[in-house]
Design a protein around this nucleic acid. Structure first.
Lengths: 100, 100
DNA sequence: ACAATTGTACGATTCTATCCGTACTATCAA
DNA sequence: TTGATAGTACGGATAGAATCGTACAATTGT
């Protein structure tokens, strides 16, 4: 796995917003925010390789952290880093009034 | 001018995030947040027709309102609508720790 | 009426995103 | 060791975004 994670200082707001500005990724991040997950926890309409692409976008933007363990990859939200750089952003996004 | 503005109910979070997930548009929105502006108030590296494109993206996502008056178009942030649907989002974005 | 100003519309180009299938790697379990 | 599982990597197709130049439309000032 290509496992580059940007440091907290390297997070860029436009990149984070862009990463979250996709319905599949936004839904994935909401689910991860409930607790650490592995890829196969997600039910999506897209293929496995497409999800790999979306995980990469989220990781490279610094939204999630990927931690390989055995055969699976645990994914978690980089809540502390995001809160440090963009206070209130995640909670605003999670609290948003979103129709089905 | 094509002047379609989505209603408050039609705002979609991914669209708003996508619209703001571009450095040019994010900078433009920050400037608009200070007060109503016209296009020519903006100094950018891109051409006039490219800016027209970015204004359209922001308008269609519901981030800004365009109000033509005479030969110019006044642009303002749809702060109330955004706050109603996505409370705290704009202030989180404006308060973000952003390096130059 | 004419010219200047302010911005849009359109078409073309280039670049980036999304998506898939297939092939592959690594780990684990039997 | 063999097979199943979990995921990545890569190449290619399609679609969408960003950008520009040119041409145009509307308004305003002379």
């Amino acid at each position: 796995m290509n496992d580059h994670h940007p440091t907290r200082e390297d997070l860029r707001l436009p990149d984070v917003l862009l990463a979250l500005g996709n319905p599949i990724r936004l839904a994935a991040v909401k689910q991860i925010s409930i607790g650490e997950c592995i890829c196969s926890d997600f039910v999506t309409d897209v293929s496995k390789s497409t999800m790999t692409h979306h995980w990469r976008v989220l990781r490279e933007a610094g939204v999630i952290r990927q931690r390989p363990e055995g055969r699976v990859i645990y994914m978690s939200l980089r809540q502390d880093d995001l809160e440090a750089r963009f206070p209130g952003l995640l909670s605003a996004i999670f609290n948003a009034d979103q129709p089905a």
